[in-house]
Design a protein around this nucleic acid. Structure first.
Length: 486
RNA sequence: GGCGCAUUCGUCUAGGGGUUUAGGACACCUCCCUCUCAAGGAGGAGAUCACCGGUUCGAAUCCGGUAUGCGCUACCA
């Protein structure tokens, strides 16, 4: 019997939900769903000084936005809780004490100042920085002395001086570290909180995590974790490290590269299903050609083996394209639902939406295939919602035309439109298309004059559909306004 | 500096000894469609598979070295 798959996403609430972290969550979630396992969220709030108010909410919001539902964790609970490390302090303390008792850890009384000086000196002498183990073999008398001084110690791990630690990463293969290159890292801080290393090992075991899927930046920490499992007498989980997401300069994606919070992308009008698809495709591929992959197909086909080994630059242009593909695939109702919050954020569009949902619903199909993001829809539809168009009169004059012929064209169009009974796209086309030759103009010339008059733009949705949605009254009003500009 | 990992078109990638004149996607260019813009269709350009050496009848694919990049090197995660 093989152990059930249990994976975890363990964010620390110190900031916004980083694109890279969320992708790690996505891989974990995909793996859990693919193999019928459990996806667990554990909040690693062990750094009191870096804790940011609202960070946890942002991270959980991001998971919810992408519908990465968790089986155990905040809100939902579970049999292995609590799921906040700040509520499991006793566990870490017990583990640290056990290690001290068996001689695998020790109290260290070195001050932060001394450590800093030591490191500076090491760097100066071009030696590898690391704790010099001054407190490793303190006598009971020396310890008592330090205690008497009132120094609150940290607990450090006693790294074996010799030998090597190796593991088989499911993606990177065999990785070997010489123990001599590892230093006696801190297990328990002086404030009683554990460091990541201790808390992680204790909890991953306590929560029966079967696979640790995390970013490549953790690969160098893995031997420490393995050594901890060893002295604690615990069986370690499988380790899987995946490549990181890079900025355009190939450095770890960070704030200076622009939007790195996944929530920023939601704000900018990206669809969660597009983001989901896009994130999955950074460092993972289904085959040699499939790009658009529905969620369920992703779940059914995800595999760790197909994750590559090289860091990938976050390609915004491709994300935009993909978002456009997903936007176009929406039904009219879905598109309306998706776009609604963005329209509501705009004054004119919001008013229109409240005034007449039907009007908005007739507008949307005209821009759906033109929008790359939902936010862009607001811009593309703006001219439908304002009373007066703001554009320069010179835009009205068509190619190879002058002011006079433009005026003539607008007036002729007015005459044709006024008596129309039906004002649908087909009728409009039937009336306006023959008008161009009558005026000695090419259709393109006439239509472009009308387009600017009616939309205030040279690029817009198809003219007749646009006029039909605007309606006779509004269309004629805009043509009159155009004439008064000339 | 030490340790670790990586290296296929600008970018994301397929490919894991012969089927490869290295395939796909984004971006770019041309043409078609067309009332503009999109979308769509058809093409194009773009990679001496980081470099050097080895193994082999044969290497992008296996091995070694070099270079470069990135990560870690905290009482951060």
């Amino acid at each position: 019997m093989t152990k059930p798959v249990r994976v975890r996403f363990a964010p620390s609430p110190t900031g916004y939900p980083h694109v890279g972290n969320i992708r790690t969550a996505l891989f974990n979630w995909l793996f859990a769903r693919r193999y019928g396992g459990s996806f667990i969220v554990r909040i690693e709030d062990t750094d009191v000084t870096r804790k940011v108010e609202g960070a946890e909410k942002g991270i959980l919001d991001a998971l919810r936005w992408l519908a990465l539902d968790w089986d155990e964790g905040p809100d939902v609970g579970g049999d292995y809780g609590p799921y906040y490390q700040s509520q499991r302090l006793k566990l870490y303390k017990d583990a640290a004490e056990k290690l001290i008792a068996q001689g695998d850890a020790y109290y260290c009384y070195c001050s932060p100042e001394r450590l800093e000086e030591m490191r500076a000196e090491q760097v100066k002498r071009k030696q590898p920085p690391g704790y010099d183990r001054r407190c490793r073999d303190l006598t009971p008398e020396e310890r008592a002395e330090k205690e008497a001084e009132g120094i609150v110690p940290v607990v450090r791990f006693k790294i074996p001086l010799e030998g090597q630690t190796r593991f088989k990463d499911l993606i990177y293969g065999d990785v070997v570290f010489e123990n001599s290159t590892l230093d006696d890292f801190v297990l328990l801080k002086s404030d009683g909180y554990p460091t990541y290393h201790l808390a992680n090992v204790v909890d991953d075991h306590a929560m029966e995590i079967s696979h640790v899927i995390r970013a490549e930046e953790w690969i160098s920490s893995t031997p420490r974790h393995l050594l901890l499992y060893q002295v604690l007498g615990l069986e370690p989980p499988q380790f899987i490290h995946h490549p990181m997401i890079l900025g355009p300069d190939r450095a770890k994606l960070g704030k200076r590269h622009g939007a790195v919070s996944i929530l920023d992308y939601r704000e900018q009008g990206y669809l969660p299903q597009a983001m989901f698809n896009f994130l999955a495709l950074i460092g993972w591929s289904l085959d040699d050609k499939t790009e658009i992959i529905p969620r369920q197909v992703l779940v059914d086909n995800f595999s760790l083996e197909r994750i590559g080994k090289t860091g990938a630059i976050f390609n915004r242009e491709k994300l935009e394209w993909m978002n456009g593909v997903y936007i176009r695939s929406l039904t009219p109702d879905e598109f309306f639902e998706a776009v609604q919050p963005y329209l509501m954020n705009d004054i004119a569009a919001g008013e229109a939406l409240i005034g007449s949902e039907d009007y908005v619903r007739r507008i949307l199909p005209l821009v759906q295939e033109r929008a790359k993001t939902l936010l862009e829809v607001v811009e593309l539809t703006k001219f439908f919602f304002v009373d007066e168009l703001d554009y320069d009169a010179s835009m009205l004059v068509g190619k190879n035309m002058d002011a006079q012929s433009t005026v003539n064209a607008l007036k002729a169009a007015q005459q044709k439109l006024k008596p129309m009974t039906a004002f649908d796209a087909d009728s409009l086309e039937a009336v306006l298309r023959p008008l161009a030759p009558e005026l000695g103009l090419k259709t393109g010339q006439l239509f472009s004059v009308l387009r600017v008059a009616v939309t205030g733009q040279t690029a817009a949705p198809p003219l007749f559909e646009t006029m039909a949605v605007l309606g006779r009254e509004r269309s004629l009003k805009r043509i009159a306004a155009a004439l008064s500009k000339l």
